[in-house]
Design a protein around this nucleic acid. Sequence first.
DNA 1: TCTACTTACGAAGGAGCGCTTCATTAGTAG
DNA 2: CTACTAATGAAGCGCTCCTTCGTAAGTAGA
Lengths: 383, 383
Amino acid sequence: MANLRGGDLSRLRQLNSLTAIRALRGAGPLTLSALAERTGLSRPSMKEVADELMELGWVEEVPPSPGTMGRPARRYRFRADSGCLVGVDIGGHNVRAALSDLDGVILAETRQPVLPDAPLEERLAAIDRAVSGCLALSGRSAADLWTVAAGTTGVLTPEGRIAFSAAIPAWTGLDLAAKLREMFPCQVLIENDSRLAALAEARRGAAQGARDVVFLHVGRRMGTGLIIDGKVHRGFGAAAGEIVMLPEARWYDAPEHLNACEVVPEGTAPEDAAGYTLAAARDGHPVALAAVDRYVDDLAVGAAAMVLVLDPQMVVLGGGFSRSADVLLAPLRERLERACMRMPEVRASTLGDECVVMGAIDYAADHLDRELFTSDAPLTPLR
Amino acid sequence: MANLRGGDLSRLRQLNSLTAIRALRGAGPLTLSALAERTGLSRPSMKEVADELMELGWVEEVPPSPGTMGRPARRYRFRADSGCLVGVDIGGHNVRAALSDLDGVILAETRQPVLPDAPLEERLAAIDRAVSGCLALSGRSAADLWTVAAGTTGVLTPEGRIAFSAAIPAWTGLDLAAKLREMFPCQVLIENDSRLAALAEARRGAAQGARDVVFLHVGRRMGTGLIIDGKVHRGFGAAAGEIVMLPEARWYDAPEHLNACEVVPEGTAPEDAAGYTLAAARDGHPVALAAVDRYVDDLAVGAAAMVLVLDPQMVVLGGGFSRSADVLLAPLRERLERACMRMPEVRASTLGDECVVMGAIDYAADHLDRELFTSDAPLTPLR
DNA sequence: TCTACTTACGAAGGAGCGCTTCATTAGTAG
DNA sequence: CTACTAATGAAGCGCTCCTTCGTAAGTAGA
């Protein structure tokens, strides 16, 4: 029962303009005839719409494709380059950023290392450098920025404050949304990093095409992201997916099975320990295999809870340990098979370390689409 | 990226007609001027739309309201009576049905007792009697039926077959959707009963207005229903909410704590046992209180899992035991408070035994709305 | 009962948008 | 150079909504 407003002829024109933009975004440059066919409009009407969109700067003409029969047709394309979106992944050890055009096509990526216990200002400066780097690499300026979407570890509030972050001590309590709004003169969105990773996997990664996805971040810390009906599910208080808090789900201490294994050399840094165990398990070392078994036993409990609650089409394994998915997937599948009502597909992440920035870009693009296609306001001129 | 079709003037008229219907459904009979103001159309245009809707039978005129200044204004109302929806709750011991108009306003209700181990044909006959009864009570005929929505216990397939039902042995394997389609010459929808109860609570019960709701059916069997973003969440394989299958969630055997309590008199039928324990607990009987404590301990584990995964705005306690919500709510809240990241509101069901039929009606009404307001087909004449 | 006031009705005229039709134009193929 | 193909551009039509204005049908007060 959303919209009670009727419309007049300008509303119809607006609808048709948006339909044309949608068609162009979906299928590259199109001729007038192709556009008319796709939208169901007549050619003359389509022409008028296209002229108006050119006038406003949303669309531009490209040279006709040569070598066709008959008179060469005008071709139009959506000006995805008339603005840009930035995705930021603010992690403990790195700040990553990516810049894309309005279609979400990545144009530049940067990474800025930062220490987990670095003071607040230092991390914010790293964010600034990462974004500036992307702008420089792609030859854009801050004025071209339409949206900055940031993903970070920790529990967020619906307004974009950091309620708590174990990985980044200086982060807890920060009003990140406000800080970023000071830094960037554009729309700013904040989300949890696992949720953005889940979105990226659902849009361009292992779970492409699935509407309901459970993303499991397996690493030194456990995290999850839910995609429900194609959208990020954040929950009423932006606290969805925190099953790690439930002792009975056995997630909190699960990574210890890998860290405390005796195949790990004496004096290994805690963040590297699990890697040894997973590598040894791959080589068939029985002690390591037993540790992995205990780890997956625990992992499967929380995972089964999520699968039973949501019945997703797919489960995607991401995060640091998912580099060893070959060791983890089979036993995880086996345990889920036993526990679940209907077994979902279980896959390893295909996007790796860029998962979160990609998800941030997709999140920003989604937001833009919603603004564009659900608003009642007429299209505004660009530039 | 749903709709790539543009539209001509008839599409605009269609949009405005639907907007008018929506406005009329939302706010009773309206005068032309009021309608015009709400929809943003001019009065003359509104008149034309209204004339067309009257012609098609979707709208009719009602006598002007007397005692107003100025010339009396024509008033129009949506003809919610031009069709009807039926909701059916197929339980172990009863088949309930309710009939509503197209706005979901209940016009008749019936109940048909049936034995849990009754053969298939007998239960189907009870469904037929329950629905016929509603039609008779409201003076309608089967030809007025637009949609029949049925909720039943058990695990369903996405197509409306019964994959498994513990409560109704004869039910397992049945293609219920097909059977009901044979019986009723209209749209037929099948859903799990707990999901429909959840929908009813979210629309007209304890969780009114909440977009994300976890409904817990507590009784001799445990069940859940999820409302996410205002819609029933069924999952990819229609198996969402089956957390009772997970041993670590401690739901499966939870009711035993109440059944096996020593305050239950010797020889009590198993379905009545828990009632004694809950009643004794209300009276402060220490043994019963201890049993309730153990029960809620278990209940809270699965509930916390769902809350942590989804972060709903509200948790609603329904099902047979929710009649003793006064005994259960406080301890459940206390345990959730400890386990959860963000504490949702926890309330008792306000709809009681009619929960499922109401939910079925709401489900049918939702389906109708989607068909009406998202289709590209022009409005068809009624009658 | 009559008059003033209020509010809705209905008809007329105009503007915007999309449609169809048809002669024209700019290419390729032989 | 000619035939063929496919897009272009202009003209005319019909529909939907808009604004404006005189008229009609009630109530309130003298």
